[in-house]
């Protein structure tokens, strides 16, 4: 394998919260164009891994490193990681009363453009882009004028995450349980949006503990994380096996 082409390289990552070791040695390599699924029982450290990738404070990296396009990701602030092309879709998207979704995403898009040396989008350009990207997840325009995620149902929040992703066009999207709390129709729509955003240049890590999502988003690799480390990596066929046999056979 060509080492130069690695987008994300996590080596020997150990992370503690309040002196408790949550990640106990994670190794992972992701290349452009790949889709990785991370599965594992509740409490195994999936959300912790995604939060560390996005730069959440209070998570202490005690060992190991994370390289993103060859650069030390851990020394970047959350916003710098976003500008570099890392996107985290939250398991529990945050509600921000009083900040409208449109203002929020417009600010975000223009901050990204500023870092690329591009001028702000005109009102008309922005509106056009927003309409187009909202259609990716069949989102109603009424969601733009409401407070970010305020009063959104579980499914609407997840659509909104993918809408944000569609607006920001990240290189690496980490989607934490984007499928949880979705009915079949919403799942199809959200997965459709994610698939539509896939290119040979970008990569996706989908975190889930159900095999269901993987019927819609076909991963190249599946990793099982347990007690803070990846205990099994395999091709997409692993999902079927987990569906039939659960996690116990992997754990024991």
């Amino acid at each position: 394998m060509n080492n130069d082409n690695i987008m994300l390289k996590i080596s020997g990552l150990k992370v503690s919260i309040d002196d408790r070791e949550i990640l106990t040695g994670v190794n992972l390599e992701v290349r452009p164009g790949e889709v990785h699924a991370i599965m594992g029982p509740n409490g195994s450290g999936k959300s912790t891994l995604s939060a560390v990738l996005a730069g959440k404070e209070n998570y202490k990296v005690t060992e190991g490193e994370i390289l993103f396009e060859g650069e030390d990701l851990l020394k970047l602030s959350p916003e710098e990681r976003s500008w570099a092309g890392v996107f985290l879709g939250f398991q529990y998207p945050i509600e921000i009363p009083g900040v409208t979704n449109v203002n929020f995403i417009k600010t975000a898009v223009n901050e990204h453009r500023k870092r690329k040396g591009l001028p702000e989008l005109s009102a008309a350009q922005f509106l056009k882009l927003m309409r187009e990207r909202m259609a990716y997840v069949e989102m109603d325009s009424s969601f733009t004028s409401r407070g970010v995620n305020v009063g959104f149902s579980g499914g609407e929040k997840k659509r909104n995450e993918i809408f944000h992703m569609a607006m920001l066009e990240p290189k690496l999207a980490i989607l934490d349980e984007t499928d949880s709390g979705l009915d079949v129709d919403a799942l199809r729509v959200v997965a459709g949006g994610i698939n539509r955003l896939k290119t040979p240049e970008n990569a996706t890590i989908v975190i889930t503990h159900y095999q269901r999502l993987l019927d819609y988003i076909v991963p190249d690799y599946i990793h099982v994380i347990y007690k803070g480390r990846i205990i099994k990596s395999a091709g997409r066929e692993l999902a079927q096996e987990i569906e039939q046999r659960g996690y116990d056979w992997l754990i024991n």
Binding site: K56, S77, E79, S82, W83, L88, A108, H164
Partner: peptide, 8 residues
Amino acid sequence: FYMRTRGI
């Protein structure tokens, strides 16, 4: 944190 992950 949520806002910062979006690049704000």
